[in-house]
Design a protein around this nucleic acid. Structure first.
Length: 476
RNA sequence: CGGGGCGUAGCGCAGUCCGGUUAGCGCGCCUGCUUUGGGAGCAGGAAGUCGAGAGUUCGAAUCUCUCCGCCCCGACCA
């Protein structure tokens, strides 16, 4: 049925690449680690963008754009930041045929260029808050790349806000991680855990990093969005101060937050199957495809004009397309739309015309049903909602079945390799135990949960007291 | 950076070990006819600086050397 797609059970990572290729989402570019995002993939990104952009605007943010090039010296102003990012920066040394006086880095993230700019914009508390987002590309020279999950250049959005108080900055950081959580759950149909990153995993230059973590079908974790409380670190590095209501000078409080084209990788690895891509209806660029089936030109004309009648009141309710291409046969088209992940396919042929019905096929389950034509306009939106919900429920069930509690080190070490999955462990909070965990199991502490219940226990590594469990998994 | 693989038509590959006419095959593409409810059939056709350079040889996709690039697996990371 699915020619050219490796089975998940056989080789998960080849399956992933096959799905990307079969759905024509992206391909490798001539430059190592970079990808060409093809129209199907970009359409998905545009849906993600449109949805998030609205959520950002609804929470009071506005868009702006800052330059791709950053003077190298800017990056060096915040000690932790430069340490974290310098190794993965691409640096431009020449321009206009001449060696530059100061090299420029291609942004790996924009905190430095933005805070050097905010310095000029902020004098008083009346200038605050600044709530800016930008949609941009960034470059990080990673050693190993994977389409969408980690590429040298990728597309993302980065929010950069400036506040008068620590409380307000914290509130913003929290608000945005919740926006991401809501996006993941309601649009990506991806259940996520939300929490705080450990010191060693947090953003370079942040005081605290919050993250959402989703489980892929192979039981590995994917960090799908992060929100950082930057404290006054960047304000201090760039000397950004403001005068408060009492005339007192203080450094500005900052946050930053982002999600990237990696979300497309998450979408693929959470929902897709051995037949190809499965897209949650709310993010599907195309939600319903109609495949008419005819045997003669006369029949074709009759069918197409009938289809036009049926679909007349579909506009503005959901997106759809009638695949009236003459050069492909129906079976070929079924397969094509399946690989591309279109949530609902409708087949309509001569027999259906006679019986005043159509065949409705769900992409996620493959289930076929005969539906009276008059009911479609009501049924299809409901079915799209149902599929959205079912995808979420299925993903959640998968996650629950692969999330475990572990208190014994030795059995945990075995189980993290096979069957893998997520583990709630007691951890004392020390860097040493965290490092040892990573070294011995290749799994890492994904986060310390916000809503984790207090529970006293012993660190699974050293036996010291612990008052809550942390989420541990292997990750992408 | 280590390990593995690959580079021959748009894509996937064979041919390379053991040099020898005009470099093949499948898919795709073009033309025509027949087809059309799960990847259609037949006939005809177009399409290649064999990753690059140098060397050996009467003769190189094939042997030698050098270089380049990409993919996969690991160490770094959204």
């Amino acid at each position: 049925m699915a020619k050219g797609i490796t089975k998940r059970a056989e080789d998960y990572s080849r399956w992933y690449l096959d799905v990307v290729a079969a759905a024509e989402l992206a391909e490798h570019s001539p430059v190592k680690g970079c990808m060409v995002i093809k129209p199907n993939g970009y359409a998905l990104w545009e849906k993600i963008q449109a949805t998030l952009d609205k959520m950002f605007k609804d929470t009071g943010h506005v868009n702006a754009y800052f330059p791709l090039f950053i003077p190298e010296s800017f990056l060096k102003k915040e000690a932790e930041h430069v340490e974290g990012f310098a190794p993965e920066c691409a640096v431009v040394t020449h321009g206009g045929g001449k060696k530059l006086e100061e090299p420029m880095v291609i942004r790996p993230t924009s905190e430095t260029i933005i805070w050097s700019t905010y310095k000029k914009w902020i004098q008083s508390y009346r200038d605050l808050p600044i709530l800016i987002n930008q949609w941009a590309n960034v470059v990080r020279w990673e050693m190993r790349t994977r389409l969408f999950l980690r590429t040298t250049e990728f597309l993302w959005q980065e929010g950069h806000t400036a506040h008068a108080t620590a409380e307000e900055a914290e509130q913003e950081t929290m608000q945005m991680i919740n926006v991401y959580r809501r996006f993941a759950e309601e649009y990506l149909a991806a259940p996520v855990f939300v929490g705080v990153k450990t010191e060693s995993e947090k953003f370079a230059g942040a005081v605290r990093t919050y993250s959402i973590e989703a489980m892929m079908q192979d039981g590995k974790a994917l960090q799908s969005g992060t929100s950082h409380n930057l404290g006054q670190n960047f304000a201090k590095a760039f000397d950004v101060t403001f005068q408060d209501e009492n005339g007192k000078l203080d450094y500005v409080w900052a946050t930053s937050w982002g999600v990237s084209t990696r979300l497309i990788g998450a979408l693929i690895m959470i929902h897709s199957d051995d037949n190809g891509l499965v897209i949650p209806p709310r993010l599907a660029p195309l939600q319903v495809v109609v495949v008419p089936i005819w045997r003669s030109d006369e029949e074709k004309q009759k069918l197409l004009s009938h289809v036009e009648k049926i679909t007349g009141d579909w506009k503005d309710r959901f997106s759809f397309k009638v695949d009236d291409r003459d050069n492909y046969r129906p079976g070929w088209k079924f397969n094509e739309w399946e690989k591309r992940g279109v949530p609902i396919r409708i087949e309509i042929g001569p027999k259906d015309l006679e019986n005043d019905q159509v065949v409705v096929v769900r992409r996620d389950t493959g289930e076929k049903s005969f539906i009276p034509q008059g009911q479609l306009v009501e049924l299809l939106p409901r079915l799209l909602d149902q599929i959205q919900q079912d995808l979420y429920d299925r993903a959640k069930k998968m996650r629950e079945e692969n999330t475990f509690y572990a208190d014994d080190w030795n059995s945990f070490v075995k189980r993290i390799d096979d069957p893998g999955g997520f583990y709630w462990l007691h951890w004392c909070g020390s860097d040493a135990c965290e490092a040892q965990l990573a070294e011995q199991t290749k799994a890492t502490i994904r986060l310390i949960p916000f809503d984790g219940e207090k529970e006293s226990g012993k660190c699974v590594l050293c036996g010291a007291d612990s008052d809550r469990r942390v989420l541990v998994a292997k990750s992408y």
